[in-house]
């Protein structure tokens, strides 16, 4: 069976400090993988490196994304190939309307893939359909990107953009942070509705709570730049109960 993304022995550093120290991960179509781990383990670094943030230096390893060498692609080409990052802290962009930039994005993605531009009518229909999916007020859809949005609205807007762009692989970076239970449910619902047998998701989270709503096929523990433990969804519950010290102790015993 083909893989969506295959990360092998990935090492990445920033300002000379190594954060990822040999990370391996494989995601197949239709799968949801959760990545959990304590603060500073490298979870957000992984998300940034995959999305193409230029501050990070890749020192070793490879990432195959649906047959392409991901690390050779620019940030925008990664998006055009079907990678999507839902930001932990979405950026506010005054004066740039959500729908305006999404139309540009969608059309540039289509152009890259040799498809025709979307008509204004089809685009607006898509906006209506997808904003309903994440219960995002259509007024917010036409407002400036994230400007003056509440924390929950920003996260919903991330999922709305994901719905609009229909990526092959979505990386959700701590999408649950700062969300109350209702917002969490709406965001998770959106993600679940977007799931198909062809696409996949990497859900990065600190807490097990989100995984009650987005049920993962695999749970991985990221610790000190590596995945140190993988297991079925029950692993998340065990982590919630015992904390990360348990993993640390296990690792120390193994040495």
């Amino acid at each position: 069976m083909k893989t969506l993304i295959n990360i092998k022995d990935l090492h990445a550093s920033i300002n000379g400090k190594e954060i990822l120290k040999g990370l391996n991960l494989e995601v197949k179509p239709g799968e949801i993988h959760a990545i959990m781990g304590p603060n500073g383990a490298g979870k957000s670094t992984l998300a940034s490196v995959l999305a193409g943030r230029e501050e990070y230096e890749i020192t070793e390893g490879s990432v195959d994304f649906d047959g392409k060498d991901l690390l050779e692609l620019s940030t925008e080409d990664r998006a055009r190939e079907g990678l999507f990052l839902a930001f932990q802290y979405p950026v506010e962009i005054p004066g740039v309307s959500n729908v305006n930039f999404l139309r540009t994005a969608l059309n540039e993605i289509r152009e890259y893939n040799g498809q025709e531009q979307i008509s204004a009518k089809d685009f607006m229909a898509l906006v209506r359909e997808k904003s309903a999916l994440v219960e995002l007020d259509s007024k917010l859809a036409s407002r400036s990107v994230n400007e003056g949005f509440s924390g929950g609205e920003k996260k919903r807007n991330e999922i709305f953009q994901m719905a609009m762009l229909q990526p092959k692989l979505a990386i959700l970076d701590e999408t649950d942070s700062g969300l109350d239970i209702d917002a969490l449910r709406i965001v998770a619902n959106g993600v679940n509705k977007l799931k198909t047998p062809e696409n996949g998701a990497i859900v990065i989270t600190h807490y097990q709570r989100l995984l009650d709503y987005i049920v993962p096929d695999f749970v991985h523990v990221l610790y000190d730049g590596k995945i140190v433990k993988s297991g079925p969804k029950e692993l998340a519950l065990e982590l919630e109960e015992k904390g990360y010290d348990w993993i640390k102790e296990e690792l120390e015993k193994a040495h």
Binding site: G52, R53, S74, E76, F84, F87, V91, F101, I109
Partner: peptide, 16 residues
């Protein structure tokens, strides 16, 4: 220009 905003837009598929 806000470089974080440029990066954000690029992650959505916009060219630089």
């Amino acid at each position: 220009l806000d470089e974080d905003a440029v990066y954000y837009l690029r992650t959505r598929g916009l060219s630089e």
